[in-house]
Write a protein that binds this DNA or RNA. Sequence first.
DNA 1: CAGTGGTCTAGACCACTGG
DNA 2: CAGTGGTCTAGACCACTGG
Lengths: 233, 233
Amino acid sequence: MTIPRFAQIKEFLIGQIEQGVLMPGDQVPSENQLLEQFSVSRMTARRALQELSDEQILVRTQGLGTFVADSRPMSSLLEIRNIADEIGARGHQYSCELLFLDVIETSPQQAIDLSVPEQSQIFSSILLHCENGLPLQYEDRLVNPTLVPDYLKQNFLLQTPNAYLSKVAPMTEADHVVEALCVDKNIASALEIAEEQPCLKVGRRTWSKLGVVSFARLYYPGNRYRLGGHLNF
Amino acid sequence: MTIPRFAQIKEFLIGQIEQGVLMPGDQVPSENQLLEQFSVSRMTARRALQELSDEQILVRTQGLGTFVADSRPMSSLLEIRNIADEIGARGHQYSCELLFLDVIETSPQQAIDLSVPEQSQIFSSILLHCENGLPLQYEDRLVNPTLVPDYLKQNFLLQTPNAYLSKVAPMTEADHVVEALCVDKNIASALEIAEEQPCLKVGRRTWSKLGVVSFARLYYPGNRYRLGGHLNF
DNA sequence: CAGTGGTCTAGACCACTGG
DNA sequence: CAGTGGTCTAGACCACTGG
């Protein structure tokens, strides 16, 4: 029932990182420092650092020390990447248009998508993300107001919903459904494509520890976007 | 340069598993047995077992012992699943049609896809996989003849290429590219859809330890198939 | 050089499982 | 009960990094 000492040290370090006391790149206490601080043997202090390193939360280098890893790497496949970062990484210009942002009452399907009661009041946003001025992603998003009460107050032209949600309600799980389809007239005209043009639709439900945070339907013109992934077994 | 003792014990156990001396479910030597066998301290024997357990190759239970894990679990997302199994799991009837199976000479693009020299002789197969008689997947596959010399001799109506390749050249890595598009007349008519019908295309390159084994282009009618995935962070 | 992480020992006490 | 894995100690020697 008592928490093992090595686990206590891990929790201490994770706490420091989550509170921002230790930032990515910072050096964390060495085995010898933790040994004194927690009055444990070196093997125990070491185990805490080693396991956090195995979990890719820390990075260790012999002779140098132990450091906070840059960012927690995700599963490389269908990785949840911020569209603005993705476009930026290609060296292209990102821009964005806010098409809708308000409270709505859930339809039966939306209630299921977000795991809330029917006819709840929830937040909805629709954004159009562009690469070099050309529409790349139509983002239709539902947000749980209980978990993210300040959603409507954000300026999504400065920070994508994805980036904001990652900060206020860190993801612990995500679901994806990928399909190919033709979109309706509204979405087609927003994306500046013909109605017959095939689109990639990604449905993504994200969880934090407290429940379903958000459900997003992302539409991409089939001729401008592909999803990639790499798996290691 | 010398291999650490714990790593030697790991290699010994992995060897036993790969040679079939130890089968899934079998109990492996306990810490105390390894300790005597390799003349190491318990901490070192333990480390070998612990790391293999972390790697999901072994399963440990306090008081019971350490056992060979059932099978190495894969990344859950865009998991490489045998289409026949997938259809069977839905309780539906699987059937399959062989459209092509022969040696071809690579086009420049095909040479890149399979990482072989241009104008190499490679194996090519085209199959149509059906669910309850309705086409679900058009599989256009290139195979490296050096790594899989007996590919053309197989009967793919009894065993899918995917299942066969998994046996003779176990996958160590895979690449995916997913896109939405309209397919050409040939593929559309095979899939029994109109040419305007959006399709999901999955390009998948698979590696074994020796190199690129196969490159498959999988086409699914957009209205009959969706890709799903679940991520845990 | 002092400090770091990597490996390893020979003990200890404990909680748990099965017979 | 004997055997298992889980945690922990107080030492040791080593290879490596930077100053």
